[in-house]
Design a protein around this nucleic acid. Structure first.
Length: 418
DNA sequence: AGTCCACAGGAAGGGCAGGCGA
DNA sequence: TCGCCTGCCCTTCCTGTGGACT
C-alpha cells in the first residue's frame, strides 16, 4: 500500500468520528454534568464582579480530572457573557494561567510576565529585574477601573519552585491599586498544599474554598455519554465501551480527563484498524497505549544524564532478573541468595561505569540522587528509603514498568546510546 | 544508651545561556 | 559590546536520620 492509498482510504472511509475535538482536553462543553453545585458556589462567590466589586479570592482543591479548571473557565465565561448583555458599563477581564506549562508560568517572573502579556503589555521572556516586571504589571492593570479575575491553575507547582512570596505579593496587590480590583482563583490538586503556606497568604488566598470530589463511575458514564454523542457518528460504539472507559477511569481516582482520553484513543485505534465500531478490546489497547506514550514521551525528553541513570537502572534490573531466573533453575542455590536489591550505591557505581563507557562526565552522587527521585516522581521507578541499621540509610529502587513498556524503553535508550 | 553507617535531602552558590537596555 | 538579570543545572558542604551493632 502506498502512502497515497493510505490517505485515500482515510478520506473515503466512513469515519467513526463526527467531531473528535469534543473529546480533547481543551474542549469546553456547553454543560458540565455533576458539577452543578460547584458551578453555583463559584458563581455566588464571583457574582460581585457583575457590579464592579471585588469578589473574594477562591481556593479550589480536587484531584486531576475533577473539572476544576473547566468549571472555573465556564463560570468566568458566563460572567463575561452576562456583563456583555446586561452590565455594559462594568469592565471585567479574566486571565487563565497554567503554572505547569513549562516556560510559561513556572517562576515568579514568568507568571507576572504572562499576566502582563495577557493584559496587552509587551514583556520580554527574561532579562528584566522582577521588580520592573511588577511595575509594568501594576501599570497595565491599574490603568482603568476594572475587575480582573486571575485563575492560577496548578498553583502548587509555582509555589514549590519559587516559594509563597509571589502569592503574598499577589494577594496584597489590591492595597496598592487605585482603580482596578484583582481576584485570584487558585487551583491545585495537592490537597495538603495550603497547609504549608505562610499563614498570611493562607488567610487571604483562601477567603473562600471549594472542594471538587472525584467523579464516580456512574457520573463518568454520564459525562462520556454526553460527549460521545457529539464526538462519534451514530452506532459507532459497541455496547459497554463507555461503561468500560468510565470504570477504568473511576479506578484511577475518578479522573474525567483519563476517561475522555481512553475513549478518544480507543476510537482512533478502532478507526485505524478499519473496524466499523469501537469495541471493548480497543479500550484495552487504548489504556496500554496511553500509559506507554506517556512514559516514552517523558523518557525521550529527558536530558542525557537522566537517560543514562535510567539506562543504568534498567541494566541492573535485567541483571537481577537473570540472576533470579538462574537461581530458579537450580533450586539448591536458594532464591533468597540471588535476590539482591538495587540500592543507590549500586546505581551510582554502575552509572559511573556507564559514563566512562559512553565518554560522559559523571555527575556527583547528590545530583544522581535527585535524578533517581525524579524518576520516582514520574512513576517510572519506585524507590523506598530504608534504614539498614549499621549499614546506613539508602534507597531501594525497583523499576515500575510493565514488561512491554520495559522493552520499548530499552529500545529507545539503546537507540540513544548506540 | 551510645555509636556509626550510608545515605537523603536542604542550603548556598558557581557557571553558563539567553535576553534586555544603554 | 558590556553590564545586568533570570533560569537552569550542577557541585559543595552540611545536617538529619533509623536501626543494627557494641
Amino acid at each position: 500500500m502506498t502512502l497515497q492509498d493510505v490517505f485515500n482510504n482515510f478520506i473515503e472511509a466512513k469515519s467513526l468520528f463526527q467531531n473528535r475535538d469534543v473529546l480533547s482536553i481543551s474542549f469546553t462543553p456547553e454543560s458540565i454534568p455533576h458539577r452543578e453545585k460547584q458551578i453555583n458556589d463559584l458563581g455566588k462567590i464571583l457574582a460581585p464582579s457583575l457590579v464592579g466589586a471585588r469578589p473574594s479570592n477562591v481556593f479550589i482543591y480536587g484531584r486531576t480530572g475533577t473539572g476544576k479548571s473547566l468549571v472555573s473557565l465556564y463560570v468566568t465565561a458566563e460572567l463575561l457573557k452576562t456583563i456583555n448583555e446586561k452590565q455594559k458599563d462594568v469592565k471585567l477581564r479574566t486571565i487563565y494561567i497554567n503554572c505547569k506549562m513549562k516556560k510559561s508560568a513556572d517562576t515568579e517572573y514568568r507568571l507576572i510576565a504572562s499576566i502582563a502579556k495577557e493584559l496587552g503589555k509587551d514583556v520580554p521572556f527574561t532579562g528584566l529585574p522582577t521588580e520592573q516586571v511588577y511595575k509594568m504589571f501594576f501599570e497595565s492593570i491599574d490603568s482603568e477601573k476594572q475587575t480582573i479575575i486571575v485563575i492560577i491553575d496548578e498553583i502548587d507547582t509555582l509555589v514549590e519552585k519559587t516559594g509563597d512570596g509571589i502569592l503574598y505579593n499577589l494577594t496584597r496587590i489590591n492595597q496598592e491599586l487605585k482603580n482596578a480590583k484583582v481576584c485570584i482563583i487558585g487551583i491545585t490538586n495537592n490537597l495538603s498544599f495550603i497547609d504549608n503556606l505562610d499563614p498570611r497568604v493562607k488567610s487571604s488566598l483562601s477567603e473562600e474554598e471549594l472542594v471538587f470530589p472525584p467523579y464516580n463511575a456512574v457520573q463518568l458514564k454520564d459525562i462520556l455519554r454526553e460527549r460521545a454523542e457529539k464526538a462519534f457518528s451514530p452506532e459507532s460504539l459497541d455496547n459497554g465501551v463507555i461503561e468500560k472507559c468510565a470504570a477504568l477511569a473511576a479506578q484511577e481516582h475518578g479522573d474525567a480527563r483519563r476517561a475522555l482520553d481512553l475513549l478518544r484513543v480507543a476510537g482512533e485505534l478502532a478507526e485505524r484498524s478499519g473496524s466499523a465500531k469501537v469495541m471493548l478490546q480497543h479500550v484495552d489497547t487504548a489504556e496500554e497505549k496511553i500509559d506507554t506514550d506517556k512514559f516514552v514521551e517523558i523518557i525521550k525528553t529527558q536530558p542525557k544524564q537522566s537517560q543514562i541513570v535510567l539506562y543504568t537502572i534498567l541494566r541492573l534490573t535485567e541483571a537481577q532478573d537473570a540472576k533470579l531466573s538462574g537461581n530458579k533453575a537450580q533450586p539448591s542455590g536458594g532464591a533468597a541468595d540471588g535476590k539482591k536489591e538495587i540500592l543507590t550505591i549500586d546505581v551510582l557505581t554502575a552509572y559511573q561505569d556507564n559514563c566512562r563507557k559512553f565518554s560522559l562526565k559523571a555527575l556527583t552522587q547528590r545530583r544522581v540522587s535527585d535524578l533517581i527521585a525524579e524518576f520516582d516522581l514520574f512513576g517510572i521507578i519506585s524507590s523506598k528509603t530504608v534504614s539498614r541499621g549499621r549499614y546506613g540509610r539508602t534507597r531501594v529502587i525497583t523499576l515500575s514498568l510493565s514488561e512491554s513498556l520495559k522493552e520499548k524503553v530499552n529500545k529507545l535508550l539503546n537507540e540513544v546510546f548506540y
